[in-house]
Design a protein around this nucleic acid. Sequence first.
DNA 1: ACAAATAGAGCAAACGATTGGGTAATTATT
DNA 2: AATAATTACCCAATCGTTTGCTCTATTTGT
Lengths: 343, 343
Amino acid sequence: MTLKEIAQEAGVSISTVSRVINQSNSRAASKEVQDRIWEIVRRTNYTPNTSARNLKAGKAPSGQASSHSIACLFAREPDAITDPFFSQLARSIEKEAFKQNYILKYSFTAIDIQHPSTFHLITDNHVDGVAILGRCNKQLLSFLKKHFNYVIYTGLNSLNAKYDQVLCESILASEHVIEYLIGLGHTKIAYVGETQNEERYIGYCSTLSKHKIPVRNEFISNVMLCSEGGYRGTKALLARTHEMTAVFAPNDLTAIGVMRAIQEEGLRIPEDISVISIDDIDMAQYLSPMLTTIHVPLDEMGRMAAKTLIDRIQGGHHLPMRISMPFYLAVRESCGPPRKNTI
Amino acid sequence: MTLKEIAQEAGVSISTVSRVINQSNSRAASKEVQDRIWEIVRRTNYTPNTSARNLKAGKAPSGQASSHSIACLFAREPDAITDPFFSQLARSIEKEAFKQNYILKYSFTAIDIQHPSTFHLITDNHVDGVAILGRCNKQLLSFLKKHFNYVIYTGLNSLNAKYDQVLCESILASEHVIEYLIGLGHTKIAYVGETQNEERYIGYCSTLSKHKIPVRNEFISNVMLCSEGGYRGTKALLARTHEMTAVFAPNDLTAIGVMRAIQEEGLRIPEDISVISIDDIDMAQYLSPMLTTIHVPLDEMGRMAAKTLIDRIQGGHHLPMRISMPFYLAVRESCGPPRKNTI
DNA sequence: ACAAATAGAGCAAACGATTGGGTAATTATT
DNA sequence: AATAATTACCCAATCGTTTGCTCTATTTGT
């Protein structure tokens, strides 16, 4: 099947067929014609001839031709892909990429990509660009920069200047969270989550300090960001002290574990202890109590990340861009004023 | 460098250059001209353009060498990838594939793959095999069979004979669930989830019937499998009747919504209503109450799916295999004996 | 009502290489 | 010396796509 044959069958010119197939948005074709063409395409299983395309594109045949593909790398360990926050982010990246005729060619985790035996599999088949999801160490970052032309970072933590990045400024977000708790009257606020190089932890500390509230070690539990982490961290916390009136979890998954641990002790949320976090994954509003959390515009973030990456691939911009997405606090049920009595 | 440029520099026609370079013995060129051409070729490092050659030759653009890659297709709508059940399954497939030196090249959703404009992106770059995750209609299935050599299905519902499949037999699982509830004394058991072509619904109905318990329409809420579905479905259910003493949700995500709706009405789980489901995603044990659910061995399932797919790609087996994974009921807190009083 | 803008579609020239069909010029044949 | 055969070339069509330009209806603005 060739464009010519399709054109004949559809009773239009080759150019029109080509434009329809390539979604050339500048020159529209009527809905009718489009449908007719797509019908034929599907029925005949037409596939564009790559050789002809590459030839026309004037690019090297096997070498440099744009693969029209990007990759997603889940950097946060372990297995960030199983966190709805990241899978939803990836999904919206994929959606936008498809819209722009790019395909999500790989998705892999940071652990895999550095494994020597799989290394060549990744670098052999090239992708035009890579989107990094979630916090990423310097070593991995420079590895990626070396092997891929275009890299964009997206997530909550920020990166050093020279990379494109689409963020939801997590220092600001955690500031907002802590301010909110302080506004409710809380001063004994615990933190359950990662602490090293974690902006949400930095925001927690700095905001407390700003209000002259001491950052107390016994209120801090350094655990991985997952439900189990939240659970264990809070258990440990409660074993040490019952003083705190609120717990800040850096993400919703962790907050789920935190809530469980609190409820398991027979304490009520928010009457005895308030719980707050950041992410707003879908299920946050179906937990009991409904989780008060920072709403991160995941879909928009993914869309922007894909857009920006593809724009750079296509030479649209050259200076590293840092795009900040707006957020807001979704106030639900898991926070209230601090209790008066000791427990 | 192109033939044209060489021709110009050598002061001969393009055809002559082409023939010299291809050593076309039928039409010789003078020794003089040949030398001149070869000199230019060597000096300029001329390489024939493969795309142009292939185009002219009418050959397939790229070879059929094994790409050592597989793809994941998330079939259940909408956006199954955001369900931890499926993302964890995908992750374990990826892990096993990497172990065997295969790479997960694409992951896309059923909606995307059928979109005509992105169609060729997918079929262009070939993968050795495709793993389908989650229930998949016949149309899509035959589409995939046509375009990919090797296809494996994995998920809870089963498929007609001729495909390789790795399952956790969901009819048996729901039977187990219902038997368990009946064993606790329940007879008024509601179902909140998809009903069409859904084996978990079939198992629900058949097991009730087996015990001579009527399947009551007002106990059934047909909703999509997600937290929101579970929530809305249960709200609707409770608006109709408060008779049921237990709710069966086909997956954990739905169960989360179910629990929320019940608790929002001021009812207790499991004292007033028991909730049970299938999946056992990580967070199931961190919900309040901890969710009693069928534990599906996700990691093993993914591993087997990848193994079986790759085995078939490598010619290891030829008859369609159907592999059933064992499951067990993870008894936690969300189920108890039926209440005695009305509510 | 008339000019200007725009949508929808087609023409034709590329991209680089191959090749059948020519056409001169050279050489061999009679 | 005229004819045939051979050698050494060149022209131009072709492969399947893409895309700037052109042309014609139709819509929009005034």
